[in-house]
Design a protein around this nucleic acid. Structure first.
Lengths: 241, 241
DNA sequence: CGTTAATTTGAGACCATTCAATTTCGGTGG
DNA sequence: CCACCGAAATTGAATGGTCTCAAATTAACG
């Protein structure tokens, strides 16, 4: 799945739930944008900033988070290539959270005016964009449930399930090993736990033969087991809209 | 603020962030719908169901929630009159969570086809709808932070702040007393705490002179204090989009 | 290869939970 | 209007999952 065009992966992903005519597709691919690369841990968007463009992830991973008064951090979502990391900034005036890169990544920076115009003139593209934001919201809801009402083992398993499913949709449906540049501290901040407890919980999941997690690679050894451990039901990902 | 038209409150709310022409407004008010009343604790939407219409709250309160394997419940949001409780169902095929009434309430049930057509033909209304779903998402994000990284006192204070702000936008900007038909058990399920601990925490907030909460009425006695206690910053509500 | 980041381990403390019982509140019917 | 009933709120005491603090070990990167 090598794309000649940097927006090709986006067009392909949107085609899964919304039929795009050849004209829609070429209008999408004609969107003006500029490449922007980021190193590890770079901020793409800062809370409180006015946004004038949106970032589409071409390569690498990113995450959204908020910082608390006491210095704590809550990660709100992870993002993989072909996803917008801040599509809401096309319509909302100021960013209410930060977006940061997880590793080196490449993005297409698209002016919000161009995005809005494309959405206004191309109904199917508008629909695809809207569905994107709705699915984002569905994921946030599931995260509220995850951090609100599940214990540490279930919580971490659930998060790993979600990431596995979303990575599969890029790497191929039967892949079980993924590039996973997420530190345990980041995993902790995404699940509302501490890094220490996250570590102990991951060890338990390894001991149970559910996963293998070494360095920057995650392997799901027992999918049904992990799904069970995580109380995971992928309905909320709306993979077919 | 008595509306002659049941969709009047919606038109007024949308006008706050999106300019609607007289034609937009009348197209909105011409939306086909049917009244539907619900008793306390009735289900408006069930997880897994295919949605054919959306519910606009005219009177009364509602909330979204998900049920867990172990019988636990996580409340994901509360809704007040003039809000859609399930606008995402206009585009997503199946509901990924439940919507239930908090007290007796009245709704306008609008066919999703009609909503989509209105959005397709009226750009400002489309924009207002889209902003609605984006603000919903912003609230979900803040809830992830709330249940993920704040202690019980901060968590509950934050939730009360949010509800106060949103209720003010209906009852008038300087009101400090609100109709609040939320039980402590529901408050607990919204904050990821137990009812017992929620009770003790509320007592502490009362003892500190921040709130008064009796029966179905909430009074904010010390707004700055509550805001401080809840680490609350209303930016995420995007009240001016 | 050195140096810093990330992971792992141990032990004690604490916030929130669990379980159970009691009191108060809110709505209903006589 | 009061008695009644179930729901909601409150209290107590014991338990426990997760956190905190610190130190040690291992992995990553220039």
């Amino acid at each position: 799945m090598i794309d000649v065009h940097p927006l090709g992966a986006l067009a392909r992903r949107w085609s899964r739930h919304t039929k795009l005519s050849p004209e829609d597709r070429s209008a999408l691919l004609s969107l003006p944008f500029s490449y922007k690369s980021f190193g590890k841990d770079a901020y793409l968007v800062r809370e409180g900033e006015r946004a004038t463009e949106c970032f589409l992830l071409i390569k690498g991973f990113a995450f959204r988070h908020k910082l608390l008064r006491d210095g704590g951090r809550q990660i709100i979502s992870f993002h993989v290539p072909s996803e917008f990391v801040d599509l809401e900034n096309s319509l909302l005036e100021v960013a209410d959270h930060n977006v940061q890169s997880l590793n080196r990544c490449e993005t297409a920076m698209i002016p919000r005016a161009a995005l809005i115009e494309l959405a206004d003139t191309r109904p199917p593209i508008r629909k695809a964009m809207w569905i994107d934001t709705l699915v984002d919201a569905a994921v946030f809801r599931e995260w509220v449930v995850n951090v609100g009402r599940r214990d540490s083992r279930t919580r971490i398993s659930h998060l790993l399930c979600e990431l596995a499913v979303r990575l599969r949709s890029i790497h191929g449906e039967n892949s079980e090993t993924f590039d996973f540049p997420v530190t345990q501290e980041q995993l902790a901040d995404a699940t509302g736990l501490t890094a220490v407890h996250t570590n102990r919980t991951l060890q338990q999941l390894r001991r149970d033969g559910l996963i293998q997690l070494t360095g920057k690679t995650l392997a799901v050894l027992d999918w049904d087991g992990l799904r069970e451990a995580g109380d995971f039901n992928e309905l909320y990902l709306h993979h077919r809209a």
